[in-house]
Design a protein around this nucleic acid. Structure first.
Length: 532
RNA sequence: GUCCCCAUCGUCUAGAGGCCUAGGACAUCGGGUUCUCAACCCGACAACAGGGGUUCGAAUCCCCUUGGGGAUGCCA
């Protein structure tokens, strides 16, 4: 069995998009599952828009997600010469032509969908066909193809132009029903550019329809009639190769066996099949991935600023969580498992199980999955990530790492995004910011204030050890003394000690803060001006 | 317009003619636990786009309609 080779071939023209990286992930999974190679090719032929920054961002994202590639990166621009040479060879072999120049302008090199394509296995006969024409528009036949106006169902003329080879055994009829032209009789001269025709008043064209077919691993058999295809430019008039040429040439040089890419490329596939064939190379296997759409069900556009891979990292998502989530967008293992490690994904992945319908990105589900990863992370690992996230925060500068570890242990299960660690400041700085709304609600009443004062005094005067049990007991006593129901002091205490209304258990929190700092904070809280 | 593709709960999905009274997960809403928030446990809501066939039997196969997307570049 031959080795499987896939490639990820992005254009470095901006930030890396989740749709792109999902294609990379699926390629990677397929390669790793089959013990094949995952190659990286940077399609930087759009010199205007390709930037060094974009390439760096791309490599950074891939590295972050663990998408390791095999071999060296192939930069497409480095092969421009070969692309041109291959194109010129096509010209020599009669597969490409320069259309006649208008006004002396330079013309591009155009690949011709081959007239003789019976020997191309991807092309098959699709039976006799007939198109009604609008007699008002002349039918043009020349070496670049056929131009005409089709009559739509509603009777409206629709301008069309097609390649010649779409019209095998073409017969053209005028409005009186007379045969006025047979393409087969003139084809030699037409292909050579020695003859061109124009017919007025035609109402019908009959021909033998042919179509290109390929079997997509995901979508199944896909076909397109040749009469709906046009010859395509392969070298621009300025002498630079276009995407189609470069892409196919590089897939050949990299010996790519499976092309796994976005749905938006299926139309290109029909054309690329002819290019592979003209370059005398077997057509690879194709798998077209469904698109990822945004929350409104629309395709992601530049305006969806939240779809960049880097942004997810910045927001506190983990690479493994994002990887896992993205792998589940359009694919599933076939059972109920969802949280899957990279190794499991590699083992389970198959292109056959990829869906062909577009998938909507759901930030809620990713958020939840990220929480799963965080929750199951070993404490030490979590602490390291947390530390890394907050090390630039001012309150961390004098923080004791051991103390930080204890705080991390207390709050891990409550953390969904690693960036939430930035809210832990109240453990490390006494310059607490109060959530004023919560403070007003919980600290405004006199009996609460009294209770806090009582608690404060008892903390200050007691010589007992400042244990969890002690804290809880004193809190109960303070409630009783101030006439509060049991438990009613907890939440005010939380606000007073931490400034905010959510967090770990309040006794644990206070215990963590220690006696001295707790007393200082309670005092400060009592002196807050909560009026207005 | 033309060509191509797609269609199961709000979302991701399971489903290969009978295992489907359509399963799971996220979200939402109840309830339990509880000092808050998470976590956890229990429960509820919620889908085969519509219409025709084929078949003893259809979410599954075929056709039509509708809706969505892509292509129709000397962008990639």
């Amino acid at each position: 069995m031959n080795e499987i080779i896939v490639r990820f071939a992005p254009s470095p023209t901006g930030q890396v998009h989740i749709g792109n990286i999902r294609a990379a992930i699926f390629n990677w999974l397929f390669a790793r599952h089959n013990k094949g190679s995952f190659l990286l090719r940077v399609e930087d032929t759009d010199i205007e828009r390709s930037t060094k920054e974009a390439i760096d961002a791309l490599l950074d994202c891939m590295n972050w997600l663990g998408l390791n590639y095999d071999g060296e990166i192939l930069y497409q621009t480095s092969r421009a010469k070969e692309h041109i040479e291959a194109a010129l060879k096509m010209k020599d072999s009669g597969n490409a032509y320069y259309p006649p120049a208008k006004d002396g302008e330079k013309t591009p090199l155009v690949f011709r969908i081959p007239w003789d394509c019976e020997n191309i296995s991807a092309v098959r006969n699709a039976g006799n066909a007939e198109i009604d024409l609008s007699p008002d528009t002349p039918v043009l036949v020349n070496e670049t193809g056929i131009t005409f106006a089709q009559l739509s169902k509603k009777g409206a003329p629709v301008q069309r132009s097609s390649c010649l080879s779409g019209f095998r055994e073409m017969k053209l009829f005028n409005s009186s029903g007379n045969l006025v032209f047979e393409l087969e009789k003139e084809i030699g001269n037409v292909l050579d550019g020695k003859a061109s025709f124009s017919f007025d008043n035609c109402s019908k064209v009959q021909f033998l329809r042919r179509e290109v077919v390929f079997t997509d691993i995901i979508k199944g058999e896909l076909a397109k009639p040749l009469d709906s295809m046009k010859d395509l430019v392969i070298v621009r008039s300025d002498g630079t190769p276009v995407f189609h040429m470069a892409n196919v040439c590089d897939d050949i040089i990299q010996k790519v066996t499976h092309i796994i890419r976005g749905d938006d490329h299926v139309e290109n596939t029909y054309r690329h099949i002819f290019l592979f064939s003209a370059l005398d190379y077997p057509v690879p296997q194709y798998a077209h991935l469904p698109m990822i759409v945004n929350a409104s069900g629309k395709p992601y556009s530049k305006r969806d600023g939240d779809a960049f891979v880097g942004d997810f990292r910045d927001k506190g998502y983990f690479a493994d969580a994002l990887f896992n989530y993205l792998a589940l967008l359009g694919w599933s293992p076939g059972d109920d498992r969802e949280k899957l490690s990279k190794d499991e994904l590699v083992e389970l992945f198959s292109l056959e199980r990829v869906k062909s319908a577009p998938a909507q990105f759901d930030i809620n589900k990713l958020f939840n999955m990220n929480g799963l990863y965080l929750a199951e992370m070993p404490q030490g690992t979590f602490t390291e990530y947390a530390w890394d996230i907050v090390k630039s925060e001012p309150w961390v500068q004098n923080a004791d790492k051991k103390f930080f570890e204890r705080v991390a242990a207390l709050l891990q299960s409550r953390t969904k995004l690693i960036t939430q660690v930035k809210d832990w400041g109240y453990f490390f700085t006494d310059d607490v910011e109060y959530d004023l709304k919560a403070a007003k609600k919980n600290l405004g009443k006199e009996d609460v204030k009294n209770a806090i004062q009582v608690l404060l005094d008892s903390f200050a005067s007691s010589t007992a050890e400042f244990t969890l049990q002690f804290i809880e007991e004193e809190t109960r006593k303070a409630e009783k003394t101030a006439g509060l129901a049991e438990g009613k002091l907890n939440q005010p205490l939380r606000i007073a000690a931490t400034g905010c209304s959510v967090g770990a258990g309040i006794y644990e929190t206070i215990h963590m803060l220690g006696k001295t700092r707790t007393i200082a904070r309670l005092k400060k809280a009592l002196s807050l001006n909560l009026s207005e």
